[in-house]
Nucleic acid binder design. Sequence first.
DNA 1: CGGCATCCCATGCGATACTG
DNA 2: CAGTATCGCATGGGATGCCG
Lengths: 134, 134
Amino acid sequence: MATQPAAQRRAEAKVMYDAFVATCPTRQVLAMIGDKWVGLTVAALSNGPMRHGQLRARIAGASQKMLTQTLRLMERDGLVTRTVTPTVPLRVDYELTALGRTLVPVLTAVKEWSETHIAEIMAARDAYEARTSS
Amino acid sequence: MATQPAAQRRAEAKVMYDAFVATCPTRQVLAMIGDKWVGLTVAALSNGPMRHGQLRARIAGASQKMLTQTLRLMERDGLVTRTVTPTVPLRVDYELTALGRTLVPVLTAVKEWSETHIAEIMAARDAYEARTSS
DNA sequence: CGGCATCCCATGCGATACTG
DNA sequence: CAGTATCGCATGGGATGCCG
C-alpha cells in the first residue's frame, strides 16, 4: 500500500504534539490544576493539614476513590505530603508542601478573575442560547 | 427497608455538590481554562484574529472536531467572536473578545508559575517513582 | 474551506465490596 | 479509618464521510 500520506501526516503530527505536550510545562500544569478535584483540595488544605476523612467531609461530592486518586497525584507532583500514623485505627494526614503553597496565589488569581467575570460569562451564555434556539 | 441512610446521604451530598458546582464561579472557570484546548487557543489568538485552518496548523494535535468544539464553547462563553465571510470557499475568522483578552494575563500567571516550578514537579515525580518502584 | 453527523474505542469516574 | 480491586456506565475524543 506504499504510503498513506494523510494518515501518516496525522500520525506524525500526533507524535509531535505528544512530544510537545510532554515538554510544555504550562500544558502539564494546566492539566494538573484543571483537574476536577485538585483546585478544591489545595483550597481545603491551604488552612492547614487535614485528615483523609476531614477532606472527604470538606469536599463533599468527591468519592473516596477520587479523593485518594487526587491526593496520590498531588503527592507524586510534590504538592502535598502524606503522613501515616500507624495507630489502630489508622490515621493519615495530608499537608501542603512549600511547592503546594506557592500554587495558592495562582489559584487565588483564577478565583478572582472568575468572580469578576462570571456575570459576563453567564450573560454571554444566555445571549448565545437566545441566539441559537430562536 | 424504611430509609437507606448511607445511600441517601450520598445522594443528598451529590445533589448539594452539584448545586455548589453550578453556582461556584471558580469551579466553572477552572473547568473552562482547564479544558484540554482552551488554553492553547487563547494563546494562539492572543496575537490577533486567525482563521480556522490557521488555528489547526498552529495548534497541531487538535482534531478538527475538537477545535470546532472548543471554539464553539469559547464563543458561547463570550471569549471569542466568530465571523463568517460567505465567499466561496467559505472563510471563518476567530478573534478574542475584550473578555477573552482579560483572560490572557491569568493564563500568563499560570504559565509563569509553570515555568518556575516545573523542575521541582519533575524532580518530585522522579523521587516518587524511585520511592514506589523500589 | 469549514462544519456536522456517525461510528467506535479509550478513559474517567462512581458504586460496591473486601483488606490491613 | 484508609486504601485497593472490580465492575459498569457515561463521557471524551479520534476517524471518516457528506453538506453548506
